[in-house]
Amino acid sequence: MKLLKNISALLLLTFIGINAANAQSTSKDRKAARALAIKNMVEAQNYVFKANYVTPMRGAGRSLTSDYDLAVSKDTIAAFLPYFGRAYTAPYNPTEGGIKFTNTHFTYTSKAGKKGGWSVTIKPTGKDKNISDWRDVQTLRLDISADGYASLQVTSSNRDPISFNGTIEKRVK
């Protein structure tokens, strides 16, 4: 009887160990697949940064409850982001607040990071005829982790810098 209990306990522990090992390998497989998908999106310049938290230079950070994003493709960047902070000049159109523009003339540089992430720098060149498309944004810098989390720093010539945290997602055309 004692032998039966020992065998049952051993089988139970073996079963639990096998299930835990399978769960870990499945988790690692999902993480590797996500990292590969992020890598492909960054290299193809085809993704959307979805902002969920903002940190202005002055004042406290806050969670964002609406959809704000930066869409990146090979030929266009489109920003729809809020702005909290000091602006040194008034906008051309007072009904348009935030960081909102679409630009087809920009430089895009990406570097692989040490831990599998990427550092992406986007600089609008301002060659578009409509100056309100790029306004005063000088640099957009994205630091992207292999897991798909990212931070975006926006540097402007007429506003204080601002940072956003969020995720990288597949761009739907």
Rank of each mutant, 00 (worst) to 15 (best):
K2Q: 11
K2W: 09
S8F: 10
S8T: 10
S8M: 10
A9W: 09
A9F: 12
L11K: 12
L12C: 10
L13G: 12
T14Y: 11
T14R: 12
T14E: 11
I16T: 13
N22S: 13
A23E: 11
T26Y: 10
S27R: 14
K28W: 12
A32E: 11
A33N: 13
A33P: 07
R34G: 07
R34Q: 15
R34E: 14
R34K: 15
A35W: 08
K39L: 06
M41R: 05
E43Q: 11
Q45P: 00
Q45R: 10
N46V: 02
N46H: 09
A51W: 03
N52F: 03
P56M: 08
G59H: 05
G59D: 02
A60M: 09
G61H: 02
S63R: 07
T65M: 09
D67R: 03
D69L: 07
S73V: 04
A78Q: 05
A78D: 06
F84K: 07
P91W: 01
P91G: 07
P94E: 05
T95Y: 09
E96W: 06
E96G: 06
G97M: 06
K100N: 08
F101S: 10
F106C: 08
T109R: 15
S110G: 00
S110A: 13
K111L: 15
G116L: 13
W118S: 10
W118M: 08
I122E: 02
I122Q: 00
P124C: 03
G126D: 03
K127T: 00
K127F: 06
D128S: 05
D128F: 02
N130V: 11
I131G: 02
I131E: 07
D136F: 05
D136E: 03
D136S: 04
V137W: 03
Q138F: 05
T139N: 09
L140R: 04
L142F: 06
D143R: 05
A146F: 11
G148F: 01
A150L: 06
Q153G: 08
Q153T: 15
S156C: 15
S157A: 13
N158P: 00
D160G: 11
S163P: 06
N165D: 10
T167L: 00
E169K: 15
K173D: 14
